[in-house]
């Protein structure tokens, strides 16, 4: 979590971290020396996973930079969701090791946003209590929880009636609540599994802006699974392109466009070039078998 530090990315655009003090943030950080010179990495080694006779991953190795937004794109059934389910600890892997800058999954603070917000939120709790819930699991006292939630809502200018039950909210509002619930713990790594695929197009565009806002503000390492190439390019520092199964890395494409990426950016020639390149790699991989 480098949110309290303003940092300059490779493309030269300064990412201003948040300016609001978080007294409890420091305590919850892993006891680890701050290394600004060295890029922290997510390292996946020897990952194996099969479902029955179907081998999805066989000795899959990859290193990904932290504090970046990485989108994952690939052919249907290549195991995009399976990958983030495993490296987030939701799904057991058959073999392999995942380290977040040398730390195991258990030692890393992880949050996960599910595709199906309807089935991921707790409908018996009000929206606000849904957001409180992970802090409750962490055992924080009520006062601290309320402070944190208030801070979070102020940071992102949320205009949703959070005293409502989730099922009374619109799809986009429900997914926003899911995302807030994921952010409230101030995770080191945030996983988003096709978070907008159940939303209509208008809402999707709006939510893409929201995600950028969150990322630019917190600088949290974010892994986004997407089935929409435009989204995968627009919302990423790097696009991880996967092959058909048994899945390998086809290419890691550096996007390098300036943030924030408005809808206009998606018609920019550089954007179109990157997207075309990704599409070529994608087709090559789809036709490979």
């Amino acid at each position: 979590m480098t949110s309290s530090v303003a940092r300059v990315s490779a493309d030269g655009i300064a990412r201003v971290g948040e300016d609001l003090p978080h007294p409890e943030r420091r305590e919850t950080e892993p006891p680890m020396p701050k290394t600004s010179a060295r890029q922290r990495m997510i390292s996946i080694q020897g990952l194996k996973k099969s479902f029955g006779d179907t081998v999805i991953y066989d000795n899959f190795d990859i290193e990904l930079p932290q504090e970046e937004l990485i989108s994952i794109f690939g052919p249907n059934g290549c195991g995009k969701s399976t990958l983030i389910n495993m490296i987030s600890g939701l799904m057991p892997m058959d073999a392999g090791e995942v380290l977040y800058d040398g730390q195991t999954i258990k030692e890393t603070k992880i949050s996960y946003v599910f595709q199906n917000y309807r089935e991921a939120l707790f409908p018996w709790l009000r929206a606000i209590d849904n957001i409180h819930y992970p802090l409750k699991v962490m055992g924080l006292p009520r006062r601290t929880r309320e402070e944190r939630v208030e801070q979070l809502l102020a940071d992102f200018e949320i205009k949703i009636d959070l005293n409502a039950y989730p099922y009374t909210l619109s799809g986009g509002q429900q997914q926003t609540v899911s995302i807030l619930r994921a952010l409230v713990t101030e995770p080191e790594v945030l996983f988003l599994d096709e978070p907008f695929s159940a939303l209509d197009y208008e809402m999707t565009l709006f939510m893409r802006e929201q995600i950028q806002k969150i990322y630019l503000k917190t600088g949290t390492t974010t892994l986004l699974v997407s089935h929409d190439l435009e989204e995968a390019v627009q919302l990423a520092d790097k696009v991880l392109l996967l092959t058909r199964r048994p899945t390998r890395v086809a290419e890691i494409v550096d996007v390098g466009l300036p943030w924030p990426r408005t809808t206009q950016v998606t018609t920019d020639s550089r954007f179109v070039d990157i997207k075309r390149h990704c599409l070529e790699v994608f087709w090559r991989e789809v036709k490979a078998s």
Partner: peptide, 18 residues
């Protein structure tokens, strides 16, 4: 029971009892 909700709680670090 919806597996997603159970997974969601587990991803937050909730114990089995919780």
């Amino acid at each position: 029971a919806r597996q997603t909700r159970i997974l969601a709680a587990r991803s937050m670090g909730a114990s089995s009892l919780r």
